[in-house]
Nucleic acid binder design. Structure first.
Length: 822
RNA sequence: GCCGGGGUGGCGGAAUUGGCAGACGCCCGGGACUUAAAAUCCCGUGAGAUUUUAUCUCGUACCGGUUCGACCCCGGUCCCCGGCACCA
């Protein structure tokens, strides 16, 4: 009996596939395409279980779709710019390029050991100049389109990484990467106008049925659309009007004070000559020194100062005081608010502390709430009061009416605000794509000429880990000439946020070796969209929104044919051990290398796919891995034991014995189950369990007196086929043992016979008052009435009912008969 | 605080349209084979009770409802996980 020697088998087939370039794919209009993509890794040098899970899921889908007749694009590459390479340079003096490329080489080996069906001819590495050349080209297109601009602004500054961070990269006021408390710094930085696409990014979500709801909701909240009105308030003795944004124009009559953000541009002029200047300056000074984390800390204690001015309510003419307070943010809305303490909890808290008037304008119509002595802001629906002509209306209905009134009287207008901010893309780092912009004293910022791309990242740099980009230390990089006027000029020394690199790599895969263009239009047209994208939920907002933005912008430039990149999204769960995330500090890390060496890649893949459905957390279990390994041994033994009989079998079979029927049923049921689970539902765990059932059935059949070799051939071969996307090496080997010379990968996916799934007899349940009392085998296809008649006429049933009275009988064909008795 | 997701045996999980709860696997127990062990194969395995080859009762976080019938639908409660968080 042959032994399952996974080491030899896996090495043999990996070489075989590579030699034949089995997974190479080209555009083929005669076939339906399928693009399956896993989020490419950062080449840290070490694959972890999360990667193995991600790529195993993708590989099953790719292999299944290929066998099912699709022209499958399944690429892999490296998101290879980024901080760790630079840190290695600072720490160990290794060149980032060298460090990165050696990591890529290492990961390449590890990925190949997993037996993944990638078209390696399409691989990309974002740090390769053939990639970042086109990254720069896309940047310039965005710039030309008006979607990239430079602006001096206070930005999130990580003191430890010595770089700026996008809003999305600040988590709880701390740097997403290193955890340092993020501060503020005023810097001139490049931004992308992602806010131009806020509405589209939001509204497209509605039709994206192939995305998990969770991710869509997270993006929706992040975009944060608010509909309301912009209202102009006059300020006494000031020639400019103060604009505010509100979602509650219905509460305009309840405004009792105004608040400006400390950074609001009017503050300086407004406080001039009021006698409040000293207090205001002191407050401004205090606020400026605060970090975001302090400023937004959850202690609801409001702070602020009166600036000694009065605003005039445009509807009532009432004079109200003006404050500054840090609970009003400069970068949302207009940086100023009208305060309605009766109907907004934050305003209420502030009013209580600063002793401002509270005027209720929405009546809850609830005797439990004392409207003139509120204990908290009333924010629910009610009836308008104290609001002039609008009294008596429902406040929701009044919103529209008041906006109409504002428009008629020229006081305000309808307005929409988004929480989404523009995307800050400059990084004061070395290991990233140089921003291809040049500053000329005469012409300002101008893009490098496209024929001069790529702007090569210099290598004559020093890594200090402090201050501005190391690129500035290059003797060759900075000085250049203006592409417009030819005078001496200076290059931008900042590099791009690496999230740009990953915002279009899926397009590059469609045409990865193109030296003339970023990607060919027709090739992209053929392959896009990505039919199935797979990755961790941690990318729900950042990467997945940036990539959508890129796709939309490129679509509007007619460079691509769709405005969304990813048709279906699968967010895989984390791999954990003993209920905790795998981490070095806890010491519960299981290395893929170790598992592959001990059990082989097929076992690793099988376990990871079997232990949990892909979206859920996966609890690593060493015993479970043993189980998967045992199963593969069991399958291998079965196939080698049955080899001669299978080879002797014919291509068609007849069912003679009941064991034949049972095996044929199990075979077809398994094909159906795996087809549904691997092809659409992606519940690989149940697909595998059904294959296990078929294998168990085959072991039973093996002991039969009469064995039908032809049926056995069909059952064994189909079993190997449906197993092959999960554990490809062992299946190739078994396929060869069974006498085949072509790769199983190029076999077509088996079809099940619906007729074979119709059993002659079905087991139905007899219930008494909904409780199962008896199971009964009856002929299949009985009607509701026939079934009921048959059951009710049985002696056993009569005995079951006994003295009781039958009230009702529910009969469900093929399922059950429920007798309701009293 | 707001918005999502979840809670099923000792464990991972299954139950696809409201119809046999616990598939498949792990663990554990028993047996066969073996000088022995490993491997393999077979049997058992939600809990409890009893008159124990079987029968009955309970059982999907908790309380209640709808229904002939609820892990599934509805209302309420508790707990866990994730996201956002002074966004006017």
């Amino acid at each position: 009996m042959a032994h399952y020697d996974f080491k030899t088998i896996e090495a043999k087939w990996q070489k075989n596939w590579a030699d034949k370039n089995l997974f190479k794919v080209t555009e083929d209009e005669s076939k339906e395409k399928y693009y399956v993509l896993e989020m490419f890794p950062y080449p840290s040098g070490k694959l972890h279980m999360g990667h193995v899970r991600n790529y195993s899921i993708g590989d099953v889908i790719a292999r299944y779709k290929h066998m099912a007749g699709y022209n499958v694009l399944h690429p892999m590459g490296y998101d290879s710019f980024g901080l760790p390479a630079e840190n290695a340079a600072i720490k160990n003096g290794v060149e980032p390029a060298k460090w990165t490329w050696s990591n890529i080489a290492e990961m390449n080996v590890q990925l190949r050991r997993l037996g993944l069906s990638y078209d390696w001819d399409r691989t990309v590495a974002t740090c390769h100049e053939e990639y970042y050349k086109w990254m720069q080209w896309i940047f310039i297109q965005l710039y030309k389109k008006g979607l990239a601009y430079k602006k001096e602004n206070p930005v999130n500054w990580c003191p430890s990484c010595a770089t700026v961070l996008a809003n999305e990269q600040v988590v709880d006021g701390c740097c997403e990467r290193c955890g340092s408390v993020v501060g503020k710094k005023s810097l001139s930085q490049w931004y992308f106008k992602i806010t131009d696409y806020a509405e589209k990014l939001l509204s497209n979500l509605e039709t994206m049925d192939g995305w998990p709801n969770k991710v869509k909701i997270m993006q929706k909240n992040w975009i944060g659309k608010s509909v309301g009105a912009e209202v102009d308030f006059e300020i006494e003795g000031f020639d400019r009007k103060l604009k505010v944004f509100t979602t509650r124009p219905d509460t305009l009559y309840g405004v009792t004070y105004m608040v400006l953000a400390p950074e609001h541009p009017y503050v300086e002029q407004l406080v001039e000559g009021t006698g409040y200047k000293a207090a205001v300056d002191e407050y401004l000074d205090k606020v400026e020194k605060m970090t975001d984390i302090e400023r937004t800390s959850t202690t609801n204690e409001k702070t602020g100062v009166n600036i000694g001015r009065f605003a005039i309510n445009p509807l009532t003419g009432k004079k109200v005081p003006v404050f500054i307070s840090d609970y009003v943010l400069m970068d949302y809305g207009t940086g100023a608010i009208m305060a309605v303490p009766a109907h907004d909890q934050r305003d209420f808290d502030f009013a209580k502390k600063f002793d401002c008037e509270i005027i209720p304008v929405v009546d809850p119509g609830n005797p439990d709430i004392d409207i003139n002595n509120l204990e908290a802001a009333f924010v629910a629906e009610g009836t308008m009061i104290n609001s002039g002509q609008f009294d008596g209306m429902n406040n929701k209905a009044a919103i529209e009416k008041i906006i109409d009134h504002l428009v008629e009287t020229g006081i305000g207008k309808k307005s929409i605000n988004y929480r989404l901010r523009d995307w800050l893309i400059s990084r004061q780092r070395y290991w990233g794509t140089p921003i291809p912009m040049i500053h000329c004293d005469d012409c300002g910022w101008v893009p490098e000429k496209e024929e001069n791309l790529p702007v090569i990242l210099p290598t004559d740099v020093e890594f200090t880990g402090k201050g501005e980009s190391p690129v500035a230390t290059s003797k060759t990089f900075v000085d250049t000439v203006c592409p417009v006027c030819g005078k001496p000029a200076k290059r931008e020394i900042d590099t791009m946020d690496t999230f740009l690199d990953s915002s279009w790599y899926y397009l590059r895969y469609c045409d990865a070796r193109n030296r003339e263009e970023a990607f060919n239009y027709d090739k992209v047209k053929y392959w896009m969209n990505v039919d199935q994208y797979i990755g961790g939920v941690e990318h729900a907002i950042l990467h997945l929104m940036y990539a959508r933005f890129f796709q939309m912008a490129l679509y509007d430039m007619d460079l691509v044919t769709t405005d969304e990149p990813f048709k279906n999204l699968l967010t895989q769960g984390m791999v954990i051990k003993d209920g905790k995330k795998m981490s070095k500090s806890i010491g519960n890390v299981v290395s893929p290398d170790e598992i592959i060496s001990k059990y082989g890649a097929d076992t690793a893949r099988l376990f990871i796919l079997f232990a949990a459905p892909p979206e859920r957390e996966l609890d690593w279990s060493d015993a479970g891995v043993e189980g998967s390994y045992r199963f593969l041994n069991r399958v291998f033994r079965l196939v080698t034991d049955m080899e001669d009989r299978v080879k002797a079998g014919a291509d068609t079979y007849e069912l003679k014995t009941s064991a034949d029927k049972s095996l044929a049923y199990e075979m077809n049921a398994t094909i159906k189950k795996v087809t549904e689970d691997a092809g659409g539902r992606f519940n690989f765990n149940t697909a595998i369990s059904s294959i296990m059932e078929l294998v168990n059935e085959l072991y039973r059949y093996k002991e039969e007196k009469e064995i039908n070799n032809s049926l056995l051939k069909a059952a064994v071969e189909n079993m190997v086929k449906v197993l092959s996307p999960f554990t490809p090496h062992i299946c190739e080997e078994m396929w060869e043992i069974l006498g085949h010379t072509e790769s199983i990968h190029n076999e077509s996916w088996p079809v099940y016979d619906e007729k074979a799934l119709v059993k002659d007899e079905v087991e139905i349940v007899i219930q008494l008052n909904g409780k199962v009392k008896e199971k009964l085998s009856v002929a299949n296809g009985l009607s509701k009435d026939e079934l009921q008649k048959l059951v009710m006429e049985r002696d056993n049933t009569k005995e079951l009912i006994g003295e009781k009275t039958v009230v009702k009988v529910i009969s469900v064909p093929g399922k059950l008969v429920n007798i309701v008795v009293k």
